[in-house]
């Protein structure tokens, strides 16, 4: 899916010129003048990779409030703060609130584009991770209760013999379950199976 650069700034000149600059580099840009419109849109398209360029000083909702709201509605979306006059306390507050970076107007375009690229890549990998986890959760639900039990034991690091003793079944039956687990969880080795179990959070249970 093509990455999308979200732009939230109350200044029309900045919105238009920045869109023009980003479009010249083949980025898809969606710009907003008001936080509310943006937040609605981002919630609907949360799975598209991208990043948000956010003007920290706006009338109405402040940049920091928007930052907080993005954390709720579009978890994982990196936010780059743009500002006309950087001051240290504001930058610290923004970074503490989870901003990805902080860029001062007028932009050094190389630097800005580099930061946008990093942010988009970060978001892409975040989305991939989320996606992989969702797939594994779907596979986990196809397992029988006994298979789920055996997988938990395997992730805990128990041997086939120990599992057989714990569940009062023969080691051979454990081997059968393990074979089915590799097939059903679509992994090729025991190591991958344990990794999948780890990602599912079985270790902590």
């Amino acid at each position: 899916m093509k990455a999308c650069i979200w732009l939230l700034d109350d200044d029309a000149g900045i919105r238009d010129s920045l869109s023009w600059l980003l479009a010249s580099l083949d980025w898809e840009v969606r710009s907003f003048a008001e936080p509310e419109a943006f937040l609605q849109e981002i919630a609907a398209t949360a799975l598209q990779p991208g990043c948000l360029l956010l003007d920290i000083r706006m009338p109405g909702m402040t940049g920091l409030e928007v930052l907080e709201e993005v954390g709720v509605r579009a978890q994982g979306l990196p936010v780059i703060i743009i500002t006309g006059h950087a001051d240290v306390p504001l930058a610290v507050a923004a970074l503490k609130a989870g901003a990805f970076d902080f860029v001062e107007k007028p932009f050094n375009d190389d630097q800005l584009l580099a930061r946008i690229n990093q942010a988009v890549r970060l978001h892409q990998s975040y989305l991939d991770r989320v996606k992989g986890q969702e797939a594994q959760e779907r596979l986990w639900l196809t397992l029988t209760p006994r298979e789920q039990e055996v997988m938990r034991q395997l992730v805990q690091g128990l041997t086939a013999r120990e599992i057989a003793e714990a569940l009062a079944i023969s080691p051979k039956t454990v081997d059968v379950h393990r074979h089915h687990l590799l097939q059903k969880m679509q992994v090729r080795s025991l190591a991958e199976l344990i990794h999948a179990g780890y990602r599912l959070g079985l270790l902590s249970q």
């Binding site: 200044d11 000149g13 238009d16 010129s17 107007k105």
Partner: peptide
């Protein structure tokens, strides 16, 4: 600063 930023942006985009 805002219009100057815009000018710079347009110039960079055009380039």
């Amino acid at each position: 600063n805002q219009p100057l930023t815009s000018v710079v942006n347009y110039a960079r985009g055009s380039r």
